[in-house]
Design a binder for these strands. Structure first.
Length: 475
RNA sequence: GCCCCCAUCGUCCAGCGGCCUAGGACGCCUCCCUUUCAAGGAGGUAACACGGGUUCGAAUCCCGUUGGGGGUGCCA
């Protein structure tokens, strides 16, 4: 299959009926990648011809999410709602060419006839030859050919074609005068000079009608189409707003990095030849090939997304990591300062930015929130817990306040372990056992950043107070 | 129902007629490292849906079957 090389002119055409969804993001990304790669243009068109469903405020969400992802579009977004006259002209030209007719059938009437005729869906052509004039409430239908085939070369699917006899006479203008999706969509693509139509697989069935319309309008067909694989859930069903986690804004709120989202989305349906999956977007722009995109549906795997996100988090400089985490710190500046003191340790341990704060929270709050499971594991079921806490208090207290550094603290805890009888075969301290009660006492949890560093940052007074408090609870 | 599409490990991707006793990644499991958890290192688990062709040779090409998905609106 030919490679897309000369500059393309592509578009992302969302309908503002919902928040930007990871599936639309996937299609938008494919368009953007190809535009950037070929030095072409990535245009935006808001398909808001349905005044009743249209929610203008959702346009903001779509634009904001595209910007968040870094998918900057070229020029000003086109709004179909402002182009009614153009569609009316197109419809008039269709009528002059005899390509359309007026229809006054109601949906119920069509259904009833279909049922009587054996239950096949679609319009039956009832008004085709009735010669109805235009009139209020009357829709305009396109007269599809009765024979022949309509097809195209799809960059991801190869040759695709439909028998014209299977294509019903579809509506191009509604009874209220509003243009239908297919008319506005096909007309605009030609009018905007779109060379490559890249969109989801759910548009495959509408493509022959689109093509018939473009031809009847005397406009040029796009150079190529590419129907991207659908993104599916664990049940292998198309991702849906109702049952799946698909809102791009939610992923942002849950601490995913836009570069990780873009990286992961690019991996759905495609993979770089060198096998390096996690990489900067510029490298994906260079390597992406529409012709190599798979036609089969891809499962949107949040576990892998998390892995990719963790990799991108670790790739950040410490300063950048702290800056990116800042909006997720609900406890403000104190939390930011706490993070600064343990940044590299935390950065290596989180998969999303929302996991940052819980890891340093013990440094910010008065008293750490005690995790019940951790208490049960390290305190209730721990070995020589009272002894270990007593010894830690004694050893840490004896430590020169000037020497409150990780190395000295490790030594002190090591001695405390030996005092408490937590020794290994060589007579050394059994640190893995010894650190449990201390960690829970100071942070409330069994997992967290390295202990010696945590104690160093917590400070002498607070560390001793928390150890004593926990010791006190044991009686 | 009809039309269209899809079919390699649980998942994503590689494979485009011999290099495949099928490779990488996520996940899961084991071990190492280790103050917890991560990270890192070493292993392991696991797939060409089925049946016919074509060919000296098929995961790769063709046909069929089965399975899955999408569409089937005066929504986009």
């Amino acid at each position: 299959m030919a490679t897309v090389s000369s500059p393309v002119r592509v578009r992302f055409a969302p309908s503002p009926t919902g928040f930007l969804h990871v599936g639309s993001g996937h299609s938008a990304l494919a368009n953007w990648l190809v535009a950037r790669q070929t030095g072409g243009e990535f245009l935006l068109r808001i398909e808001d011809t349905d005044a009743e469903r249209n929610r203008p405020e959702l346009v903001d969400n779509v634009l904001e999410m595209l910007q968040w992802l870094g998918l900057q579009w070229d020029g000003t977004p086109v709004h179909q709602s402002e182009r009614g006259a153009l569609y009316a002209d197109a419809a008039a030209s269709l009528e002059r060419a005899g390509a359309t007719y007026h229809c006054d059938c109601t949906g119920e009437a069509v259904q009833a006839r279909n049922k009587a005729a054996g239950g096949k869906p679609g319009y039956d052509g009832f008004c085709r030859d009735r010669g109805l004039e235009a009139g209020p409430g009357r829709a305009v239908r396109f007269r599809t050919p009765d024979e022949g085939r309509t097809g195209w070369t799809d960059l991801v699917r190869g040759e695709v074609s439909f028998a014209n006899e299977d294509l019903e006479d579809f509506v191009v203008v509604r009874g209220n005068g509003a243009p239908m999706f297919l008319l506005a969509n096909a007309f605009d693509d030609a009018d905007m000079g779109i060379t490559h139509v890249i969109r989801g697989e759910d548009h495959v069935n509408g493509t022959p009608k689109y093509l018939l319309l473009v031809d009847a309008l005397g406009l040029a067909r796009p150079t190529a189409f590419a129907h991207m694989p659908l993104l599916v859930n664990e049940g292998r069903k198309k991702l849906s707003k109702r049952r799946d986690d698909v809102s791009m804004a939610d992923y942002r709120a849950r601490g995913y990095l836009p570069e990780a989202m873009v990286n992961y989305l690019a991996l759905l349906g495609w993979g770089p030849a060198d096998g390096v999956e996690v990489r900067p977007v510029e490298e994906i722009v260079e390597r992406y090939r529409l012709e190599d995109v798979n036609a089969s549906p891809a499962f949107f795997d949040q576990k892998k997304l998390s892995f990719v996100n963790a990799e991108h988090i670790r790739a950040l400089s410490s300063a950048a990591f702290q800056e990116r985490a800042r909006p997720f710190l609900t406890r403000g500046d104190p939390a930011a300062e706490a993070l600064a003191s343990l940044a590299t340790e935390v950065q290596e341990r989180v998969r999303t930015l929302t996991e940052v704060e819980p890891m340093i929270e013990f440094l910010v709050v008065e008293e750490p929130t005690m995790d019940e499971a951790s208490w049960a594991k390290a305190i209730t079921k721990g070995k020589a817990v009272p002894e270990m806490l007593d010894a830690s208090i004694a050893r840490l207290e004896a430590l020169d306040p000037e020497a409150w550094v990780p190395e000295r603290i490790q030594e002190a805890i090591g001695r405390a372990a030996i005092d408490a009888g937590l020794v290994n075969a060589e007579g050394g301290p059994q640190l893995s056992k010894a650190q449990g009660p201390v960690r829970v006492a100071i942070s409330g949890r069994t997992v967290g950043p390295p202990l010696w560093e945590s104690i160093t940052v917590l400070g002498r007074a607070r560390t001793l107070a928390r150890l004593r408090h926990t010791r006190g609870r044991l009686g």
